[in-house]
Simulated assay, not measured.
Amino acid sequence: MTDLLLQIGIFIIAVAVLVWASDKFIDAADSIGKFMKLPSFIIGVLLVGIGTSLPELVTSLVAVAESSSEIVVGNVFGSNIANMFLVFGAATLFSKSFEIKHDIMKTDLPFLMLATGYISIAVMDLRFSFGEGIICLIMLLLYLYRSLKDGAIETLIEEKAHKPTIKDWIFILLTPLLIFISSKFLITSIKEIAAIIGVGNEIVASTAVALGTSLPELMVTIQAGRKGQNEMAVGNVLGSNLFNILAVMGIPAMITTLIIPQSIIIFTLPMLIMSALLFMIIAQAKKVYRIYGFLFILMYIYYNLKQYDLI
């Protein structure tokens, strides 16, 4: 029991440091990027896309380096389920009036469904190879191209760039090290917790890690929903999920073939497909009601309890 509590403590601290360091890295990169007059689209893609998936990406790369590739798919699928059921559900539940005005059916939603469909088929043989990772990265580049062409990715507002502070330079240099170290501790704690409670590494990754790395987005999205900034909430889910599938799965697969646990195929994958289909049906309807958010959150609670055979 003492060992379990110790590992849970390490897990919580590692997730907190990972999320904090990622957030500070993004802020520093934003400040330095504007000062260097980088194109607003480039800054936007790095911050909105890769930035929001940075904890998942680094954690997955560390997992691959430690021969625990099953954590990668658990991390990605669990994060996407959390984004759709928990983050989008909470935004809907806490919003006074939720309407989607942006034409997400033109580029964003079709790409999300295409990516989800592709990854669902690709992992059925319990392996995710180099070639399949290449296809993910090609799809990511196509999505970025279409988004730029259609104007789906908002450009940053031009403003007078201030000279980066010493703190910005310190963060841009030191936070990558913090992100790496916290990811190492996170992977170690996942293995220890899984061994102690008798579940697979992928289950801890798809539940506890996914929830931990989604908490900042959850808080931001709830506030956005309460302020009526519904487009931000939807864009947050779409962008993060696309980068999770295409980059966080694609890049580690370039290093080694990812092994997909049978438990992912049996339960997590069907839940991923269900969450994506429900999100598509509700999002394309433009008008979203609070009852949907309540049902989505119930589905997320069910998903987590079922993973640990608590129901």
Rank of each mutant, 00 (worst) to 15 (best):
M1I: 12
L4N: 01
I10D: 05
F11Y: 07
I12Y: 08
I12K: 06
A14C: 03
V15R: 11
V15G: 07
L18S: 11
K24C: 13
A29F: 02
D30V: 14
V45A: 14
V48S: 14
V48M: 15
S53Q: 04
L54Y: 05
E56L: 09
L57Q: 08
V58Q: 13
L61S: 11
S67C: 00
S69H: 01
I71P: 05
G78S: 08
N80Y: 00
A82M: 15
L86M: 10
V87T: 02
G89N: 05
A91M: 12
T92N: 10
F98Q: 08
K101H: 13
M105T: 14
L109V: 07
L109W: 05
P110H: 13
M113S: 09
D125Q: 03
L126C: 04
S129G: 03
G131N: 11
C136I: 02
C136P: 09
L137I: 02
L137C: 10
M139H: 01
Y145N: 12
Y145D: 05
S147V: 07
L148P: 01
G151M: 13
I153H: 09
I153K: 08
P164E: 14
I166R: 12
D168T: 03
W169F: 15
W169H: 13
T175F: 06
L177F: 15
F180W: 14
I181F: 07
I181S: 06
K184F: 08
S189K: 07
A195Q: 14
I196Q: 10
I196R: 02
V199I: 10
G200L: 03
N201T: 00
V204G: 07
A205Q: 03
S206L: 07
V209W: 04
S214E: 04
L218T: 00
L218C: 07
V220W: 06
T221K: 07
A224G: 10
Q229P: 05
M232P: 00
V237L: 03
L238V: 06
L242W: 06
L242M: 06
G250V: 02
G250A: 04
A253H: 01
I255L: 15
I260A: 01
Q262P: 03
Q262M: 13
S263L: 13
I264R: 02
I264M: 05
I265A: 02
F267N: 14
F279G: 12
A285S: 15
K286M: 06
V288Y: 00
Y289T: 10
Y292V: 11
L295P: 01
L295A: 14
L298I: 13
M299Q: 12
N304I: 06
N304L: 06
L310F: 02
I311A: 07
